[in-house]
Amino acid sequence: MIELDINGTKRSVDAEADTPLLYVLRDHLAMNGAKFGCGLGQCGACTVMVDGEAVFSCMTPVSVLAGRKIRTIEGLGTVEQPGALQRAFIDEQAAQCGYCIAGMIMRAQALLEKNSSPSDAEIRRHMMPNLCRCGTHMRIVKAVRRAAQTMRAEADKPKSAGQT
């Protein structure tokens, strides 16, 4: 049994040490966000975050993940309450088939947590490992930019009285 911290929840998983995280998420834990795209680290459809960095879950064996913080797109928000990037992808209609999008959002999230106002060039460089085949790239870049704006605006807001 391996204990994993996924989106802040401890999950015990009965998987062999060399099992890539992707299959634990999808198969053992029935989570849809991370997608199988290549199993080679070439396309980024499986991208999740580990300790704040974007990683290919198809290449990351669960044995290295004990005690580390895993985030998937399920941890960013829901249809009812989407996170800033999810909201921005909806607002920009930044999907066609959408298969790559969860990975795109997770890679973008890792960027925005380090750089709250990336330039277009920085966004493009950062997103390089992730492939989109439908040609949604321009909208994806716009959505990341839009989310960065929202996140900055949120961060600038004075905390309301009730909040600690």
Partner: peptide, 24 residues
């Protein structure tokens, strides 16, 4: 990792940055 130049074929290895801790 090892990346071919943009748009080119070539040797490839995925980057593992972020996947491993120092100790790992």
């Amino acid at each position: 990792g090892i990346w071919p130049d943009a748009g080119e074929k070539g040797a490839f290895m995925p980057p593992f940055e972020g996947a491993f801790t120092e100790q790992q």
